[in-house]
Design a binder for these strands. Sequence first.
DNA 1: TATAAAGGTGAATCCGCAC
DNA 2: AGTGCGGATTCACCTTTAT
Lengths: 263, 263
Amino acid sequence: METDRIIQGDCLGELPKLPDESVDVIFADPPYNMQLKNPLYRPNNTRVAGVDDGWDKFSSFMEYDSFCVSWLRECRRVLKPTGTIWVIGSYHNIFRVGNIMLNLGFWILNDVTWHKANPMPNFMGTRFTNATETLLWCAKSADCKKYTFNYEVMKRYNGGKQMTSVWRIKLCTGEERLKGNDGKRAHSTQKPEELLKRVILSSSRQGDIILDPFFGTGTTGAVAKKLNRRYIGIEKERDYVTLACARIGSITESDIFPEAGWV
Amino acid sequence: METDRIIQGDCLGELPKLPDESVDVIFADPPYNMQLKNPLYRPNNTRVAGVDDGWDKFSSFMEYDSFCVSWLRECRRVLKPTGTIWVIGSYHNIFRVGNIMLNLGFWILNDVTWHKANPMPNFMGTRFTNATETLLWCAKSADCKKYTFNYEVMKRYNGGKQMTSVWRIKLCTGEERLKGNDGKRAHSTQKPEELLKRVILSSSRQGDIILDPFFGTGTTGAVAKKLNRRYIGIEKERDYVTLACARIGSITESDIFPEAGWV
DNA sequence: TATAAAGGTGAATCCGCAC
DNA sequence: AGTGCGGATTCACCTTTAT
């Protein structure tokens, strides 16, 4: 299978073209725009009557759930039995995603907490500062016990003690944050490379194929190359694809992470 | 309504007896549906005392979901519009619980991460050390904007900086851990008082009524009294009720937390 | 009495192969 | 599929015992 490529297209259309059990690791950073504030319509375009708060939101949940079932089912199909999948989300969507993953038969190995070292404060003083995102790390099923986990590598990376499920990592800012021609951030949710480094380093080996169905500006691909892994990215927006291509193309020998040879 | 009382009975049977919109805060620590299969041994061959209590046995996701829908729906009914609910869980159950809460119309304010300072290691090196539990803090609905959140209190409690959604707290061990006559832990999953202290201090005022439908050995009630709040506890197991009564009854003036008067 | 060493334990979905 | 067995595997905190 051709690797190290970016496919421009909707993942719902492109994932079905990948063969069964062909990728080692999946990293997915899906959108979580559930649009709960807008008028609600059922799939058949009838408006939902605002009878009850719970039901009022239900149709938009259904739409989001349906989307997630589609791409997650395809992800499960293309994942090798020895592979694992990572999905990142916030409290807005991770409970719906997690529930669906369980229903599809995925087996949770860890719920990793990305503890943001520099979260945005809560200016209104109405809640606790929202300082985390959650990564669900799952095997294909409970039976799949031969998944890759580089325990010793992560222990070494963590200074000699086994790594826990809490990762304190700064937000992606400064030099690392990709800017557009207007000088503004090119992507609203670019993830820090340190996050992907831990994901890929822990759950894959050199040469493995990493699939990212929501490639964005290509952090997954960039880190995969810096760790001597292969990648397949799927991204709908042409501008992001262009950025990702340039970003990954500019990686040189000097960018390779020291940990690249650990597995 | 009579408060500061422990009701011995199943919460599915007892919750319906409480009036609509009658409590200010709910803290719920439901069974996690852990699905443990084989015994686990430490490297020194001692066996880990797992949670194999009967109350944590469910035959399927469907059965667990159905159970949660029932008690969560009742919780929503008895919660005041100005009130909030906390539910704690691990990755085994929190995604099912969170999904159900969203479907019932609850509005997530924070997903608070209990970062355990001293979690049990992963002995076999198969995963990251599971170092967290998650607390979902929710309003009754998206419209309920007048919920209680003592922002300044928590900021002060946190040393002058606004408190974030990550709480680093030690496990409940040592003197605080209730022991049975045999000297062994009285309850498999007793929560640290520090956790409840933050829950109650942040989301209630003096005199408020705190409901705990899975009272266990009464940590919620004990902390409520130490913070000058009222409580209602529901607990099925008679032994736990006995312990909780004695525990709360022995609280004296000297046990009151210094923060009790902050709100 | 103070300090050090030894022991116990925690909501855990914790091995892999041969027969 | 179930069983048996060889072998590899741990961190922070608290309590108890020893020096």
